[in-house]
Amino acid sequence: MTMDTPFNVLFLCTGNSARSVIAEALMNKEGAGRFKAYSAGSMPTGRVNPHVRPIVESCGFQLTDFRSKSWEEFAKPGAPALDFIFTVCDNAAGEVCPIWPGQPMTAHWGVPDPAAVEGSEAQIGAAFAEAARLLGNRIRLFLNLPLASLDRMSLQARLREIGERADQASSAQ
C-alpha cells in the first residue's frame, strides 16, 4: 500500500444514522487528508440522529455535511474505490454485503448503539460520547499502523485485532 493518494474508508452500520456517521467524521478529521471516509447502511434510516451533532461539530463539520444512505451507493460503477471497510455494528457485520470492487480490506469494529439508549438527555449524550470515544480509539490505532510496510495478511490481522482488543487496551491505561 502506498500513501500517494488518500485511502478511501467506508464505515458500515445498519441504519447509517449514528455510529457510522460518527466514524466518518472522526476519520475525516483524524486522517488529515491521508484518508477519505464515507459511511453507509444496509437499511438506512434516511436521517442522521440529531445526537450526532455535537460530535461532528467538534470535528469541524456540520450535521448537514452527512446523510443516511445505502451501502449500494458504494457498490455501483463510479463509486469511490474503497481500500478499507469497517462494520461498526453487529447487525451489519452479519449481513451479506454487496460485492465491493477492488477487494478492500475489511474488519468488524463493533460498538454499542447509542441510538438505542433510553433515558435522560444526559444519559443519551453520554452514550453518544462513549461511542465516539470507542470509535476514536480504533481509528487512532488504525492511523498509527505502518501501512506501507505491512503485507496484506499482516494488515488484515492487525485490522481485526483493533476491533477485538481496542477497548481492552484503552481500559487498561
Rank of each mutant, 00 (worst) to 15 (best):
M3Q: 15
D4R: 05
D4S: 12
F7K: 15
F7I: 03
V9C: 14
L12Q: 09
S17V: 02
S17W: 03
A18N: 03
R19F: 07
S20A: 02
I22L: 04
A23S: 13
N28C: 11
K29R: 14
E30N: 12
E30Y: 13
A32I: 06
G33L: 01
G41K: 04
M43R: 13
P44G: 06
P44K: 01
G46A: 11
V48G: 05
V52H: 11
P54I: 01
I55M: 12
V56M: 11
E57F: 00
E57H: 10
G60E: 06
L63Q: 03
D65Q: 03
S70M: 05
E73F: 12
F74E: 01
F74S: 06
P77S: 09
L82W: 10
D83M: 07
F84H: 02
F84L: 12
F84T: 08
T87E: 04
N91E: 15
V96H: 12
I99Y: 09
P101R: 15
P101I: 00
G102K: 04
G102E: 04
P104N: 03
V111W: 03
P112C: 05
S120L: 02
S120W: 10
Q123W: 01
F128H: 11
A129K: 14
R133S: 08
L134H: 06
R138Q: 13
R140M: 05
L141N: 05
A148L: 00
A148T: 08
A148M: 00
D151F: 03
R152K: 15
L155H: 05
E161D: 15
E161Y: 10
R165C: 04
S170R: 04
S170P: 02
Q173Y: 08
